[in-house]
Design a protein around this nucleic acid. Structure first.
Lengths: 241, 241
DNA sequence: TCTAAACTGTGTCCCTCGGATACAGAGTAC
DNA sequence: GTACTCTGTATCCGAGGGACACAGTTTAGA
């Protein structure tokens, strides 16, 4: 009996993400590597999204048959998980000499950048899933940055969840390459026009919005979140002394 | 020429979400309604996820043929959009006599609740998409609550984005029904065990985590966000006077 | 050196699912 | 009553994920 969730074999997925790659002792040399397969899949998904990602296309871009991929990857779902783990990659080193706030600010922006470069990652991270080593390494950085701030372990993890959510969420709203017509006016203006009495506050807000910098929403949210965390740390350390 | 994005006809989707339902003048009476179809789809997706949602199953649960659905809905993608719009529903009335903070706090929890009841909504809201009337109505509430706080229109929308992201993100982490074994220890503990030297801070944080309340992460993030917004409003109004 | 085992990539097959199309019946305007 | 319009259905197709058996390749062991 194997443990399955939504067609994904958890055991094989764990082996794929966490297992140590071991070369086979006998038989023909493998012509592919997990890394190469993941890269090929990422390239396809980056241009055509997850819908455009088929085993056939990945195989073609590697000059093998579709079924050859199944020697390396249990199935499509697991391939996407592997692509995700590869796409986020290892977390960047924390900026030298930065306090917790500087570290978290940099961290969130870096993560945002990875998500923006791979729009499909947004969809791929929906729902509960098994995190890979790289993903945990990113988490580790947040918690490490918060050590010594007086926050409990649970709160440190809560901060991580909060920041991940913000970075990922804003990568969705941001156009991949600052494409024209991706602004709020283009998104909402058309819908509200002619329905001002139904959405008066939205209408007013849209009129009050000047052309924002591309990542203004990221900056704004990040600043609010870090301000809130700062307030908590300050209050608590003041109370303790 | 029709404008398409990822196989979704934007024009027909707009008509589906925003058009006024008009009864046909001739021919047999329709046996179905958009609302009934959406409900049937939601029921299926609630139990088996978006992967379990097939046109066949939706049709079966309504006692019609698969192809009958296409008289009402352009395709599967548009059905999901309609389901989403139906599942979020109309926003609740703001709590009487609450200030902006009380309103936003309640708003975020209500939205969180909707997302938690429909786990598939997380995946359905990934990527840019056309919002429906209900979705805009939710946004309207946030912006309305912030009118008069001194925030610019753009900032008010930034707040909305921030809150939506948090509510949606945490619905993902929260188990639908407080299922056992859904805690952090179950999720991360197994992965870290034996790799403590690789994730020292995470290991320490997990040990420092006592059993949290089910929605502790939601509360924590929400409190930080609202604190941060409060700080901004306070500082700015102080500077203005 | 020879043989058996292990492993790889391939060809073929099947099933599921989304969707196009043609058609028969139902209901209405004239 | 007749022509037109709209509905649900039956049939068909192609794409895509994946199972399976097989042939070829490399190595361990006799």
């Amino acid at each position: 009996m194997t443990v399955e969730t939504g067609g994904v074999d958890q055991g094989r997925l764990f082996e794929l993400l966490w297992g140590t790659p071991t070369a086979p002792r006998r038989g023909p040399r493998p012509t592919l590597t997990l890394a190469a397969i993941a890269r090929a899949g990422i390239a396809i998904a980056d241009t055509d999204g997850l819908d455009g990602l088929t085993m056939q296309r990945v195989a073609e871009s590697l000059d093998v048959t579709k079924m050859a991929l199944y020697r390396y990857v249990p199935g499509r779902a697991e391939l996407v998980a592997l692509m995700l783990e590869t796409a986020v990659g290892e977390p960047p080193p924390p900026p030298a000499g930065a306090d917790w706030r500087g570290q978290l600010d940099d961290w969130a922006r870096q993560l945002f950048d990875r998500f923006r470069r791979h729009p499909w990652a947004q969809a791929a991270t929906a729902g509960p899933r098994l995190p890979g080593p790289n993903e945990l390494a990113w988490l580790e950085r947040v918690v490490a940055a918060l050590a010594g701030t007086g926050l409990t372990g649970g709160e440190q993890l809560d901060v991580a969840v909060l920041l991940v959510g913000h970075a990922r969420n804003l990568a969705q709203h941001a156009a991949p390459d600052d494409a024209p017509g991706a602004g709020r006016e283009a998104a909402f203006g058309v819908l509200i026009r002619g329905r001002e009495e139904r959405f008066p506050a939205l209408d007013a807000a849209l009129r009050d919005t000047d052309l924002e910098a591309p990542d203004a929403a990221l900056d704004f949210g990040l600043a609010r979140i870090l301000d809130g965390i700062d307030a908590l740390i300050t209050t608590r350390s003041a109370r303790r002394s």
